[in-house]
Simulated scan of single mutants.
Amino acid sequence: MGSLSYTATISLDGYAVDADGDFQWGAPTPEIFQVHLDRMHEVSTEVLGRNTYLLMKYWEAEPDDEEWADAEREFSRRWQALELIVASSTLTHDDLGSGTARLISDLTLPALEQIVADAAGEVEIFGPTTAAPAIVAGMVRDFRFFVVPKVVGGGVRALPDGARLDLKLVESTTYDNGFAYLHYRRG
């Protein structure tokens, strides 16, 4: 049986995406990219919504030329080894291409509980909209935030309204660029 986690890069005022739909202000430095790469050892399954899946589809095939660094090639290799579950009522199986992603049209809480129960390791739910019902329901055990020292003033909140959680800080790191990594576990 696995456990459920939620990881997000967020602004100091708590947004994962700004009001213009931009999130590039949270692009990882090589040091932070390595942290993402290292934490993937624990993850066996990714649950993603439509937008996040389409963004991460980039990692499903390595380019033929030399444009990727070694860390990017390793991230792609690890990403391709994950079980990907895409929650979308608008995508079709054809939209997923030839990858190994599995499409479910409605990610109910019982369906998510079954995904976690069947997982060999950590199940990471990726994307604030997709994660919101599980967060509010108290299903997420681990929260990992990469906090960017930027205030964006609005957009898509990393944590949903209505969530009431008691969390314990289990790990924290600050980086030279001002980013902070905060790992909380449900109390």
Rank of each mutant, 00 (worst) to 15 (best):
Gly154Tyr: 05
Asp166Asn: 14
Gln114Thr: 14
Leu82Cys: 08
Leu55Met: 11
Pro149Val: 12
Glu62Ile: 15
Leu84Gln: 11
Met139His: 07
Phe126Thr: 13
Trp79Val: 14
Trp59Arg: 01
Leu109Ser: 01
Ala71Phe: 04
Ala119Ser: 13
Ala117Ser: 14
Pro133Met: 00
Ala111Gln: 00
Arg78Tyr: 06
Glu113Tyr: 08
Ile104Met: 02
Asp64Leu: 09
Ile104Pro: 00
Thr129Glu: 06
Trp68Gly: 10
Glu122Phe: 03
Gly127Lys: 05
Ala131Ser: 07
Val156Arg: 08
Glu67Ser: 15
Gln114Arg: 15
Gly99Thr: 11
Ala119Glu: 05
Glu83Met: 02
Ala131Leu: 11
Phe143Ile: 02
Arg102Gln: 06
Pro110Cys: 05
Glu124Asn: 07
Ser98Arg: 09
Ala87His: 03
Gly154Trp: 12
Arg73Cys: 13
Ile135Arg: 12
Phe126Ser: 05
Arg157His: 02
Met56Thr: 03
Asp142Glu: 04
Glu66Gln: 14
Arg144Pro: 08
Ala61Gln: 15
Ile115Trp: 00
Gly153Asn: 12
Phe143Ser: 04
Glu124Gln: 12
Asp106His: 13
Ala111Asn: 04
Asp161Glu: 14
Leu103Gly: 08
Met139Asn: 05
Ser76Glu: 14
Asp64Cys: 00
Ala101Asn: 01
Ala87Tyr: 05
Asp166Phe: 02
Thr90Asp: 02
Val136Pro: 05
Glu66Tyr: 06
Leu82Asn: 01
Arg164Lys: 11
Glu60Ser: 14
Leu109Ile: 03
Asp118Tyr: 02
Arg73Ala: 07
Arg157Cys: 02
Asp118Glu: 07
Asp64Ser: 14
Gly99Ser: 13
Leu165Ile: 12
Tyr58Trp: 14
Val140Leu: 00
Val156Leu: 07
Pro63Glu: 08
Ile104Gly: 02
Val140Cys: 07
Glu113Ala: 15
Arg77Gln: 13
Pro110Trp: 00
